[in-house]
């Protein structure tokens, strides 16, 4: 994909993201932050492709490097994602049960 397109996507996403959460009650700052924190683990996708591609690499060094560094990246990002969504869910559950 052309770099310009990527940059464009970034800018559009930034602006839209900025507009969408204008009014957040401070009540929800923590869950919102931890939810977005979980989303920032999306970098998992990059780690996945790195490990996936190097898995089929012909050069030994590339294979090792990709599997080790990429593997650590996958673990770190997955902890970020699962931990993030998990605690967010726990927190929100606490707000939720009070409705009744």
């Amino acid at each position: 994909m052309h770099p310009i397109i990527l940059l464009l996507v970034f800018v559009v996403a930034t602006v839209v993201g900025y507009l969408i959460i204008k009014q957040v009650p401070s009540l929800l700052h923590t869950p919102l932050m931890s939810g977005m924190n979980a989303l920032s683990g999306i970098t998992l996708l990059g780690a996945l492709t790195a490990v996936g591609f190097t898995f089929f690499a012909t050069s030994r060094g590339e294979l090792l490097l990709g599997q080790i560094l990429g593997g650590i990246a996958i673990i770190a990002a997955t902890v970020n994602v699962i931990g993030g969504f998990g605690v967010t869910h726990r927190m929100l559950k606490m707000f939720d049960k009070k409705k009744k």
Partner: peptide, 14 residues
């Protein structure tokens, strides 16, 4: 790129 941008921007707003 898209999701990262969204998170970055909304985090900044927060």
């Amino acid at each position: 790129v898209a999701v990262g941008g969204i998170v970055g921007a909304s985090g900044l707003l927060l």
